[in-house]
Design a protein around this nucleic acid. Sequence first.
DNA 1: ATGAAAGCGCTAACAC
DNA 2: GTGTTAGCGCTTTCAT
Lengths: 337, 337
Amino acid sequence: MTRATLRDVAAQAGVSHQTVSNVLNDHPSIRPATRERVLAAIRDLDYHPNAAAKALRESRVTTLCCAFYGHAADDISDPYRNLVQSAFIAEANARGYSITTAMLQGERPEGLGALRTAYMGRSFGGVVVVSTTLPVEWMRTLAGWGIPTVLFDRADPDGVLPSVTADYVGGMTELVAYHVSRGRRDLALVIPGDDFGSSAVLRREGFLAAARAQGVRHRIEAGPWTAEAGELAFRRLWTGGDRPDAVLCGNDRMGAGALYAARQLGVRVPEEVAVSGFDDFEFARYTAPSLTTLHLPHGEMARLAVRRLLGRLEGQGSPGEAPDHRLPVTLVQRESA
Amino acid sequence: MTRATLRDVAAQAGVSHQTVSNVLNDHPSIRPATRERVLAAIRDLDYHPNAAAKALRESRVTTLCCAFYGHAADDISDPYRNLVQSAFIAEANARGYSITTAMLQGERPEGLGALRTAYMGRSFGGVVVVSTTLPVEWMRTLAGWGIPTVLFDRADPDGVLPSVTADYVGGMTELVAYHVSRGRRDLALVIPGDDFGSSAVLRREGFLAAARAQGVRHRIEAGPWTAEAGELAFRRLWTGGDRPDAVLCGNDRMGAGALYAARQLGVRVPEEVAVSGFDDFEFARYTAPSLTTLHLPHGEMARLAVRRLLGRLEGQGSPGEAPDHRLPVTLVQRESA
DNA sequence: ATGAAAGCGCTAACAC
DNA sequence: GTGTTAGCGCTTTCAT
C-alpha cells in the first residue's frame, strides 16, 4: 500500500500540486468548483499529508515533550502522573500539538543529552518537566541550553525557568492551623530533605513558620516521597519515646504509609494521633481511616503548564510575568485528622 | 540562534556534505583523518541532525504511539498506567524509538480518526493500545486500517490483532482454589459486564469454571473497574440478605473500594468475609487490611508489547505465532483473604 | 485563480 | 575516498 502524495491528488483532480496545497491550507482565492474537485480526489485517494515533509518545509514544530523525572524507580508509580499527562495531552491536542513522552533518570545531568539532541533535531519545540525532585543542576543545564522549559510541581530557585506549582506554603499554613484548632499541640512533618527540591523545601518552611506562629511544638522527620518512607517515619516517631499528637505527611503516598504503620502498631487514628496528607489522590478516600489532606488542582496545573509553554513558543509570553505560577489548594477533611 | 546544517559542517571541515553524512552514518571507507576533521567541525558548530529531514528522506519512522483508552475520565487515574508507560519508553528508547502518547476517548470509533491521520502522515509507525475495555468495534476499525497494533491487557476476540495479556483464567482458578482451601464456600466476583472487554470476560469465565469445578456456591456482581464500583458492589452484596463469605474483585481498585465498604459497614475482614483483588498495585499493601491479590507482571508485559510491535514493524515477526501472549501471574497473600 | 520554480536538510546512487 | 546529482513531500515566492 503506497500512500498518495500531493501530486497524485493533483493528477487525479486535474490541477497542479500547488492548488491542492492551497486548498489544504484554506488559501483564499480558490474557486469553489476547484476546491470541490480537489477534496473529492483527496477522499478518493485517501490522501493524508506527510508530517515530516510539512515539518521540514515549514521548520515548525508541532510536538511538545512531557518529561518525567524520577531518580528512583519508585517515583514512576506516583498515581498523580496519569492525571497530569492526560491533561497535558488534552490541552496540547486542543491547540494542535502532539505529546512525546520521555523519562529522565539518574543523578547526573548526562541523562539530559538525549533530550537536547532531540530538541536540536527539532523533534519537539519545548518541554514540561514533571517532578518534585528535579535537581537544580539539571535546571541550570536546561536553562543554559535554551530549551523552552516549564517546570511542573517544582519551582526554580534561580528564578530562571517558568514553573507551575501549588500554594504549598499556604496549604501547610492552613493544615497546621487546622490541626491546632482540633487541639493538637505537638506536630511532626514527614518530608524529604533539601536535596529533594523546592516542593519539599516550601512545604517544610510553610510548616515551620506556621507552627512557630501558632506557638506549638514541632519537628521534622526526613524521608523520600514514598509510602514506605511514610511507614518508616511513623514507626520512628512512635517508638522514639517522645510521641507527637499529629503527623503531617508531605504527600498522600507517605500518608498512606503512615496510616499503615499506625495500624500495625495498634495506634488509633485520629484519637491518639492525627495524620494528614498532601495531594488528594484517588486512594486518599480509601485508606483506613480515610486521609485528611490538601487537594492540589493537578489537572488545572497541567493545562496551565502547557499554555505557558505554548505562550513562550508562540511568542505571546508576557515578558514581565512572574516565573512561578502558584495555584490555590483546598483542605479536604476526612477521618484521619 | 540558527542551527548548523550538514553543509555548514562540510564547509567548516572543508569536505562535501556527503562526506559528513557518511561519517554520521558510520559508512566504511572514510579516512580516519577526514573523520576526525568532520567530528571536530560537528562539535565546533554544535551540529545536530534534523529529525524531520532524515525521516522524510529515509521514509522511516522512529516513533511508536502509546494510546490509552478510557471511556470514562475515571480510567485515567488507574495507577498501573504509569508503570506501563515507563516500561514502554525504556524499551522503545533502548531500540532507538521514541514514544508519542495519545488519549483515545468516547464511545464511537470516530475518536480514532486523529490516530489514523497521524499514522498515515507517518507520525508514528505503530501503536500499543493500553486498555482493558477497548471495544471490539474499535479493534476491527484498527485492524481494517492496517495500522500495526498491539493490544495491552486486552485480547482481540476476533484473533486478528496481536495482544499481550496475563493469564487471567489461570489466575482466577488459583484464586478460587485459594479461597476454597481456606474454607470459603460462597464466592462472589465483582467484575464489569461483557461490554467492558475480554479481560473482564476471561476473569469471569475463569471464576465460573473454577467455582463449578470446586463445587461451591458462586455469583457475579457487575460494576466498572473503579474503586467506587467495588464499594457499591460490596454494599449490595452485604445488604442483600444472602451474604457471600468471599468477595473476589476484578482489580485492586475495586478491592480497595470493597474494603472501604466493609469497614464502613463494620464487617470484619477476613473473619466474616474474605476480600481479594487482581493486579497488585502499590497500594494493595496499604489498604486495611492489606489486600490479597494476584500480581500481574505489568512491566514485563509492557516490554513484550513493544518488542512484538517492533517485530511486526521490522518484519521479524514469526508468522505462525499465536496472536495473544499470556504472561503468568502469581498469588500474593496478604491479610484480607 | 492557477501554474512553475526553488528549496527546507538529508541520504542513496553514481561518478571521479 | 570523496564530490556531484537527484529527490523524499511539502510550502513559499513569483509569474501568468
